[in-house]
Design a protein around this nucleic acid. Structure first.
Lengths: 360, 360
DNA sequence: CTGTTAGCGCATTCAT
DNA sequence: ATGAATGCGCTAACAG
């Protein structure tokens, strides 16, 4: 079927080992045979068999990325980035989707090491720490986005405390004193950290924390919808909502639409993690950018580093990729904390007539 | 490092071959040793090495999916579906992203067969037909979404002619006589077929085709924006736009927003291929569902079929997954083809008051 | 610098 | 029903 090293060797009248050395460029062959072999190999259309090579070397040229899904925009760009980076280095990406499920994660992990992957980037569920720890002895692992507290693996995290802080502070600076927060499950790193950033911004501004304004939930649109309703049904509803649970954003928008709440006129909206359509949306949605692209790149960097030299457990550390506030059009300044609006019409005719007040 | 078959054999005091037979369940061993070996293997934590096995059998338990990107919602669900299906069968998915680039596709393809993938599902660019044809001799291949005309590979397509027809007819039935079409590049299967479906619906309705209403372009949001502008700047702009170029949808929405064109009051909008946020959007966006999930499932089915028995080139055929019209809220009935509207204000209060004018 | 030998872990042929 | 032997394609000692 396909030409093997043996074929090349025979054609060149050398031994297989010489052929191997020449083609792998170990520098242990004469310049001449090196070039000759290379040429012959090319002519014959020789392609080394990674399987055979892998059996010998214990390497597979396979690197796995384990994420929860491909619905989350951050995971999408991470997958794209990782795959692009790896391809450039002649690695193939094994993309696995764990659904944030402990069992699925566990199964996948064992299968992956079975396949002798050369490296792994994983968004851990946090429930298979022991297993991860064990596997880490055999294969370089980098955790991404979430930390697995039961391990001491190299980890690349978003700076969620900072991101949530920046976002919240932004809203406060715009005059909002009642900022609703819809955040992720508190058993996840990001969920907890974003809450903490929010709390800190409040504290710094001397605003009392009001737990009625804080809702944590699963990473699904429905969470956004139900939490938004709860917030808006409050006797004194928030003037701004910070949706720090990416997936929940859709649900929140749905509710504001249902209730004819104009953004940003009636309510300021700030979301976490960018999505392609956020900036095309009307109004363009302001966000706290978690830096998905940079997170992925850094994770790859770190993984390659550990794969390269066997940097054992030395220098295992945690990295943070800073968050950035990207102001678009979904947050507005408010003066009067509540009560009647001054409402001068805004330049945006299709919007609620109350628009203008936003500006001042 | 890890326990090998040899270890198991030794522990069981049998030969490696017996161990192999027992564990692979060839039925060529006594029931007793079979069970005994299984038990011992489990106790020892034996995991077969796919690399070694692959070297022998020529199989890798690896199946590749080659798509253009992960931005397109259809590709996202396809990746998720393929990966889920394969995982259940103990295959790993190699996800490759070709960017709709001929060179990248070509490179990727060779790398994949190097890795001895057991099967391939590919959304072809259409520019590497010869190569695909060659590879198909070595590995089962199923084309997805696009056909590569230079090959005779098993292909799973969306029923784009039907989908575009259904969508266009729907708009016509709502009273629209001037339906703008923003469609994909005409050098792609789907681009051509969607145009043809549109044309057919027009013809059946006795509406003359107006090329000023038809725009084809690359699969990017910018296409949608520029094409939408051209359409809306027409002396007699369309009363409905059918965005049959998925990626272009964002651009179209941007323009309608910029211009304060209310949907569906001023303009009906119908899109192709679903996205999670379409139904959360306000107004919820009506779509022609290409059936991404079913497409992927069928592709996997066909691939498995060919992988299973070596069904050579027998029964190579093309499959179509029917499209479905999903009516939501972005299309409305119009009565007067042109002129002043009878304009009953719609239930959508937050929309522009200027809405009407766009109509004429 | 090159050829010979050995073996990675496993499946499979051929004996028995 | 089982063991011994062979080789998948390649790399890596070990000699020369």
């Amino acid at each position: 079927m396909s030409v093997t090293l043996k074929d090349v060797a025979q054609a060149a009248r050398v031994s297989v080992s010489t052929a191997s050395r020449a083609l792998t460029g170990t520098g242990l062959t004469s310049e001449r045979t090196q070039q000759r072999l290379t040429r012959i190999a090319r002519e014959l259309g020789y392609r080394p068999n990674p399987i055979a090579r892998g059996l010998k070397t214990g390497q597979s040229r396979l690197v796995a990325l384990l994420v929860h899904n491909l619905t989350n925009a951050s995971f999408q760009v991470m997958a794209e980035v990782v795959q692009a980076r790896l391809k450039a280095l002649n690695y193939q990406m094994l993309l696995c989707i764990g659904g944030d499920d402990a069992q699925a994660e566990s199964d996948t992990l064992t299968t992956l090491v079975d396949h002798r992957i050369d490296g792994l980037i994983v968004v851990p569920t946090g429930k298979n720490g022991a297993q991860l720890k064990t596997l880490a002895k055999d294969v370089p692992i980098v955790c991404l986005v979430r930390r697995d507290d039961a391990t001491d693996l190299e980890t690349v995290l978003a700076d969620d405390p900072q991101g949530a802080y920046l976002g919240t502070r932004h809203l406060i600076e715009l005059g909002h004193r009642r900022v609703g927060l819809i955040v992720g499950r508190q058993d996840t790193t990001s969920g907890r950290e974003r809450l903490s950033g929010y709390v800190r911004a409040l504290r710094e501004a001397g605003i009392a924390r009001d737990d009625a304004l804080i809702h944590a939930g699963h990473y699904v649109p429905e969470t956004g919808a139900s939490c938004a309703r709860k917030l808006l049904d409050l006797p004194r509803p928030p003037t701004a909502i910070f949706v720090a649970n990416h997936e929940a954003t859709l649900g929140v928008l749905r509710v504001t639409a249902e209730r004819n709440i104009a953004i940003p006129d009636d309510l300021s909206l700030l979301c976490y993690e960018d999505m392609p359509w956020f900036e095309w949306h009307r109004p363009a949605i302001s966000i706290v950018d978690n830096g998905a692209r940079d997170l992925a790149n850094l994770a790859v960097d770190r993984l390659l580093h550990r794969m390269d030299k066997d940097n054992g457990n030395d220098g295992v550390r945690e990295y943070r990729v800073g968050a950035r506030l990207i102001k678009r059009d979904s947050c507005r300044r408010i003066d009067a904390p509540a009560s009647a609006k001054s409402g001068k019409p805004k330049s945006s005719p299709s919007k609620s007539s109350a628009a203008k007040s936003a500006k001042v």
